[in-house]
């Protein structure tokens, strides 16, 4: 079952870059995200799946579509015609290389003891996130601040113009 989800993920990602219409690309990306989210559920990572659906498939797609609409008037750029053919060609070659490399690894990878004792007990997600990875939360706050201020800095010229008007 997982293998189909993975294939779907890769197919939709490939579609996202081969589509000529940007809106369709963005939507393909969203669909790929949903595949990934389902995969996360199946792998026992429900919270990551929820985030993937709500933020990546939701928020990011919305952001993309907003930008596309804002820049639509003259923003159409024609990609090179051969790009898609080249993509197919290289992609097939890459898949073959990938397959052989991974096959070469089978049996050569070391077997390791399961988990370190420190973490094996932490099966409660909220405990892990809040107690084990607290610093990351601080980092998240920093990152959000950074993103917000960057966006503010980039759009401050508007305000100036508006004030002048």
């Amino acid at each position: 079952m997982n293998i189909f989800l993975l294939c779907g993920l890769v197919c939709f990602s490939a579609l996202a870059i081969t589509m000529h219409n940007l809106l369709k690309s963005a939507i393909c990306l969203g669909v790929a995200s949903i595949f990934l989210a389902v995969l996360f559920f199946r792998m026992g990572a429900p919270y990551a799946g929820v985030f993937e659906v709500s933020i990546v498939a939701g928020l990011i797609t919305v952001l993309f579509i907003t930008t596309i609409v804002l820049t639509k008037r003259e923003g159409g750029v024609k990609e090179r015609k051969l790009t898609n053919i080249f993509f197919l060609l290289f992609f097939i070659i890459f898949i073959m290389i990938d397959f052989f490399v991974m096959k070469g690894f089978i049996g050569n990878l070391p077997n390791m003891p399961v988990g370190s004792p420190n973490l094996a007990e932490n099966n409660n997600f909220s405990k892990v996130l809040w107690q084990y990875r607290t610093l990351d939360l601080v980092g998240q706050i920093c990152a959000i601040f950074a993103g917000v201020f960057s966006v503010l800095a980039l759009f401050r010229a508007d305000k100036k113009e508006n004030n002048n008007e």
Partner: peptide, 25 residues
């Protein structure tokens, strides 16, 4: 944060924080 952290992923997080701020700057 990057300099003080003791964890590979924290290094990445704080690196991105500094980087995102620097894009804006």
């Amino acid at each position: 944060g990057l300099v003080l952290s003791t964890d590979l992923f924290s290094i990445y997080v704080f690196l991105e924080v500094a980087a995102i701020a620097s894009y804006g700057l």
